[in-house]
Write a protein that binds this DNA or RNA. Structure first.
Length: 575
RNA sequence: GCUCCCGUAGUUCAACGGAUAGAACACGAGAUUCCGGAUCUCGCGAUAGAGGUUCAAUUCCUCUCGGGAGCACCA
């Protein structure tokens, strides 16, 4: 049985958003940063209760009678009403109370909003291995990372978008050996990544028969680390050519980095970092010469930082990279957008950084982890088995399907425009499919859903935008409009409300590093506006309703556009 | 064995501790004399199990069961 206090508390929670606006108006505070929370026990001195009492006073209701406040649509539901002994029913006027015409206007026409001003965030994402093709698994880090970069920027933070290339490690020993034996320079130039994959696969096949190849590879990598000129030259070719290939993909995906880094570039500082760890007495040197960091917390297993043969490891290079970045960029926080599987590793890394005192404890280090992309059967896709779906292939397929759809739905568009639309729609569908889902759960790859242009999909949002723009085109120039409470009552409260929540959705997405919150928000907004203009004629409405609805359409289009851009999905004017 | 992540309609996903757990796909029924039907409207259908905390639990805690990942010379 819910007590009266319980119901009041519950309602107050729901009223938070409205309260936030009131607080802002009256006390000039930015409540987006203030958590107006539901109190455990609601007493008279309580903040939210006071607001409720103020509302009652404003409506001329004795405070002793305040038990519950029902808002908007809620008030229509009889089962809720009968739960209260005394009820204040707030019809649309309620919204007017909290959202005065001025405040709505201000919200709708607000310019820059910078709650994250002063923050500097480094986001490391994508981080492909230069010798392997990008596949659907890389899509998540790349797309989520870029969306986070955009979200933080939209909130006013300064962001350093970093791509940390996997361009170093034992595998390059294998590649160098394989290239020497079976590689083709022409092919490498032409299709660098395919060629590297080919010789890499061949290496593994041959190594099963001739295990001595593994030792050769180890030696080659060690030589590379020690600066062998010839090997270094070949390695540079690998890197240069594949980077060129990756950049084409990034361009298509709307992904842009401020800096490219590579594991290779920290070679020189490794020794210094290790020495520092030794000096801080957090390193244990084993008999075989390998070095590990052991942690007090038993849940975190020891982290190896140097191999017995003296060669470096991923962890060593990452430590050096982290240290260098702190010095170079002076960030307030760092985000690593890397798969779930490396959760333990990042625990180790961050704990080690703390122990060594590399970073100011105020600098927040976060591993933004995400689930796997599983194959259609729900099993992990393996590179070795050749089950991977190449990103390029996926995008081409989606764009191709989009092209056929455009041709069917809108044949009168020009050839060039069709191609442009198809690219935006196809890539948009693929990106949205990923971005609309919680990043933590594993997602099952499914061609059909990936290619779906209906329902909760990227193209649905793009289509909604196109329709709104179409209305606006036909409407001609917008008239300026004087707001007053009488007009606002005519508006759809749900839509209006949703419209105002755009920046909150960005803020929440940033707080939780979850772009899908923005995607969900946009979907809900599109849903509302689609229903809205189906039942409320815009162009045929009489003034001032027509102008008012047009304004709503225009603002919705604007929010959709900027929201989609934040997610990295392009909008088109026709489709 | 230990650690971490995840269990929600037939399927794929939502739900800042709050109201009748929302969508999409699939399935069934409907809407174009009206701003583009890639749309809209209606129906069908779910919180793995057992305890605990709370006025209130899909959400927090404990245990069980199920799926995935990780646990020193890979990245």
């Amino acid at each position: 049985m819910t007590s009266e206090v319980g119901i009041l508390g519950m309602l107050m929670k729901k009223l938070q958003q409205e309260i936030a606006v009131v607080v802002k108006e009256h006390w000039q505070l930015d409540t987006r940063e203030v958590d107006v929370s539901c109190p455990r026990e609601l007493g008279h001195g309580d903040f939210t209760t006071n607001i409720a009492l103020k509302v009652a006073a404003r409506w001329g209701i004795p405070t002793s009678q305040v038990t519950g406040i029902l808002v908007g649509e809620l008030a229509q539901r009889p089962f809720i009403r009968k739960n209260f002994t005394n009820v204040i029913i707030a019809e649309p006027g309620f919204v007017n109370f909290f959202l005065s015409p001025q405040s709505i206007w201000r919200e709708l026409s607000r310019g820059k909003y910078n709650p994250y001003r002063g923050r500097k965030v480094i986001v490391e994402y994508s981080a492909p291995n230069i010798a392997k093709p990008m596949h659907v698994g890389h899509l998540r880090s790349t797309i989520i990372g870029q969306a986070l970069v955009n979200i933080y920027r939209a909130l006013g933070a300064r962001v350093v978008a970093l791509n940390y290339l996997g361009d170093w490690g034992t595998q390059f020993g294998k590649l160098l050996v394989a290239y020497q034996k079976w590689g083709s320079k022409v092919q490498l130039k032409h299709t660098p990544i395919d060629e590297m994959l080919r010789i890499y696969v061949k290496f593994h096949k041959e190594a099963k028969i001739h295990p001595e190849l593994e030792d050769e590879a180890k030696a080659a990598f060690k030589n590379l680390e020690q600066g062998n000129k010839k090997l270094l030259q070949t390695w540079k070719l690998f890197r240069e050519y594949s980077l060129r290939e990756f950049n084409d993909l990034y361009k298509r995906l709307g992904v842009k980095f401020d800096y490219y880094e590579g594991e290779s570039q920290y070679q020189k500082s490794l020794r210094k970092v290790l020495n520092e760890l030794v000096a801080k007495k957090i390193i244990t040197i084993n008999e075989d010469g390998s070095q590990v960091v052991i942690f007090d917390d038993e849940k975190i297993t020891p982290m190896l930082v140097q191999k017995s043969d003296g060669a470096s490891l991923y962890a060593t290079r990452d430590l050096a990279a982290l240290k260098a970045r702190l010095k170079k960029y002076h960030p307030t926080e760092m985000l690593y957008v890397v798969a779930n599987q490396q959760a333990l590793y990042f625990d180790q890394l961050f704990t080690c950084v703390k122990l060594a005192g590399f970073s100011n404890p105020k600098v927040k280090l976060t591993h933004v982890k995400f689930g796997l992309v599983l194959g259609e059967e729900g099993k992990k896709m393996s590179t070795r088995e050749g089950e991977i779906i190449k990103l390029e292939e996926l995008l081409n397929k989606a764009v191709d399907l989009a092209w056929r759809t455009v041709e069917k739905k809108n044949p009168e568009l020009g050839r060039r425009e069709k191609a442009k639309v198809a690219e935006a729609v196809g890539v948009g569908a693929v990106k949205y499919n990923d971005l609309s889902q919680n990043r933590l759960t594993d997602i099952t790859f499914n061609w059909r859903r990936m290619m779906s242009f209906e329902g909760n999909s990227g193209p649905y949002l793009q289509y909604t935008y196109v329709r709104l723009k179409s209305i606006l085109r036909k409407a001609g120039k917008l008239k300026s409009l004087r707001f007053n409470a009488d007009i606002l009552i005519e508006l759809d409260v749900n839509l209006l409300h949703k419209l105002i929540q755009y920046q909150d959705s960005l803020l929440r997405a940033a707080k939780e590093n979850s772009p899908h919150l923005v995607a969900n928000y946009l979907y809900e907004l599109a849903n509302l506006v689609n229903s809205y203009y189906h039942e409320a004629p815009v162009l045929k409405a009489v003034e001032p309703l027509r102008s008012l609805r047009l304004l709503l359409v225009q603002r919705t289009a604007l929010v959709l556009k900027s929201g989609l851009e934040v997610l990295g999905i392009k909008v088109v004017e026709r489709m």
